[in-house]
């Protein structure tokens, strides 16, 4: 089953926080909605499931047809950012979604158990859910949603607050679990790596609007405008005034190399000059903050710089590492 929306608008406190004219997630596909904090990601997710009390207009579609709240309730399962578990055992929590849909306890437990296994928490089945770590609780929350066998699965930043190892493991387990069913999956996240690991396509949401939408690898590598560039980590931004080009050029700071002394720049590189404001050690690398006539600029280098704050520094970015933005 596919989920989508047309002209979906959500207001909160008299302000429009989400305005999405069109979005479609076909069955079997995972779409990531990538956006900075406060961009309206969670609001969009909730609006798609008709959850919460925010004022909304427009329509949510299931299989291309405008869906009612009841139809959405049956089709959709959503995992919230923070795992909200019940005062019960892990197994009963995993079975809770089914129980809430009227499945008898015995059968619900029976159907939930394989999902605990798929998410790697089967050994915790008998534990009190309130004694779980954050990562374990999130795994149980995801198993609970998957156990329902939803035709649409909505994930609201399910990896937030997990340590790096736990997160990587969970991403792998979730990917495998999602492959087992043909649900339309919408993942809301602010993390590019999560989108890269899970999503076929990615939408960039900025200020409640979808700025870019396409295959994940393409979208993550080609920001359309300055805000998307910042969101995607292209935080070294070279305005036309600095480069003499017609458009804004952006690059990842780790692709910007300071030029030593009077060394000539690589042939196709764009070179900008600035005054070194400070050097921030990043553990194995250094972040250089430069002041240029057109604003500040950031570069990351592993080389040990001879220049100090106040010195003039040249930074080169290879043409292949530059992206042109509107």
């Amino acid at each position: 089953m596919s989920i989508g929306c047309r002209d979906l608008r959500v207001s909160a406190g008299g302000r429009e926080v989400v305005a999405v004219s069109r979005l479609d997630v076909p069955a079997g596909e995972t779409l990531a909605v990538l956006g900075p904090n406060g961009s309206g990601k969670s609001t969009l997710l909730r609006a798609l499931a008709h959850l919460g009390g925010a004022a909304r207009s427009g329509s949510v579609l299931l299989d291309g047809r405008t869906a009612t709240t009841t139809e959405l309730r049956r089709a959709v399962a959503a995992v919230l950012q923070r795992p909200v578990l019940q005062r019960a055992t892990v197994l009963d929590n995993a079975a809770a979604g089914l129980r809430l849909r009227g499945v008898r306890r015995g059968e619900a437990r029976h159907r939930a158990r394989p999902w605990l296994d798929a998410l790697g928490v089967a050994q915790l089945a008998g534990r009190d859910a309130r004694t779980l770590s954050g990562g374990e609780a999130q795994r149980v929350a995801i198993a609970r949603a998957l156990a329902v066998g939803p035709r649409v699965l909505l994930l609201d930043e399910p990896f937030t607050g997990l340590d790096a190892t736990t997160r990587t493991d969970l991403l792998a387990d979730l990917r495998a679990a999602l492959d087992r069913q043909r649900a339309a999956v919408l993942l809301v996240t602010h993390d590019r790596e999560e989108a890269r690991a899970l999503a076929d396509r990615t939408a960039l949401l900025v200020n409640g609007e979808i700025r870019q939408l396409g295959p994940t690898a393409e979208v993550l590598d080609a920001p359309a405008d300055q805000e998307c560039a910042t969101l995607l980590g292209f935080t070294t931004q070279l305005p036309p005034a600095l480069t003499g080009r017609e458009v804004l050029l952006v690059a990842r700071p780790e692709r910007c190399r300071p030029l030593a002394g009077s060394a000539p720049p690589p042939p196709d590189a764009v070179v900008v000059e600035g005054v070194l404001r400070r050097v921030v050690p990043l553990g194995g690398a250094f972040r250089l903050d430069l002041d240029t006539p057109a604003g500040s600029l950031t570069a990351v280098t592993t080389a040990v710089l001879t220049e100090g704050p106040g010195d003039a520094v040249r930074v080169a970015v290879a043409a292949a590492d530059l992206r042109a933005c509107r």
Partner: peptide
Amino acid sequence: DFLLQMRALGAT
């Protein structure tokens, strides 16, 4: 968020 999560799992 308890009620919201229960609704998000398909509860009436």
